[in-house]
């Protein structure tokens, strides 16, 4: 009569029901809704690429990038957090609020493109860690150029190339002994 042991155990222990709102806090690793820190964002769009349910959308604009997130679509898989190269995307550790209307918690974060130090036009955001991962040893020249907007960077690169070619051409000409 083992079932009687279970029953007497239950009676002796008392009800196990947790009365509202006495709910246990979620585990430390809990995967809640996603937030994004615009200050860290590179606007690379990886979170959009890995998002299975299209809860995250990254829409690049002229001077800034729109990052939208809809918890109603989110599957809370955490892929965006795992794959973000600069840890700009994080997940809340709590269960969040309930809501009644579809899309009520949709969030939009605008990631402004920093101004180009030369011309003032929008340039792409940059991050030291990613720069290191992409190029290994970062030369002073590269670090200086990375802040520029695309146009200024192209110009700077062309100028540098021209300068190099020019020097080579100068020496070549002199070597020619014409």
């Amino acid at each position: 009569m083992n079932i009687l042991n279970i029953i007497t155990g239950n009676v002796a222990r008392g009800p196990q029901t947790v009365r509202f709102p006495g709910r246990e806090a979620p585990a430390a690793a809990y995967r809640g809704s996603v937030t994004m820190d615009a200050a860290k964002c590179l606007a690379c769009g990886i979170c959009d690429y890995v998002c299975v349910s299209r809860a995250i959308a990254v829409t690049p604009g002229a001077a800034s990038c729109e990052w939208t997130y809809d918890p109603g679509r989110c599957t809370y898989c955490g892929r965006c957090v795992d794959h973000c190269p600069v840890a700009a995307v994080t997940q809340a550790g709590d269960r969040g609020d309930s809501y009644a209307r579809s899309g009520a918690q949709r969030a939009t974060v605008t990631v402004p493109y920093p101004a180009c130090p030369q011309c003032g036009r929008p340039a792409m955001p940059y991050n030291e860690a990613v720069l290191g991962a992409a190029f290994g040893d970062v030369s002073a020249e590269l670090r200086e150029r990375i802040h520029l907007c695309e146009r200024c960077r192209r110009r700077a690169t062309t100028a540098a190339l021209k300068a190099n070619f020019g020097a080579a051409a100068e020496t070549g000409r002199s070597d020619d002994g014409r």
Partner: peptide, 23 residues
């Protein structure tokens, strides 16, 4: 839930390993 952060969809696996360690 303690390992993965969720009660049902654990999101533990990725090609080449797992996403979370057992703390």
């Amino acid at each position: 839930e303690a390992i993965s952060g969720n009660r049902v969809n654990y999101a533990m696996n990725r090609p080449g390993g797992v996403n979370r360690d057992i703390a």
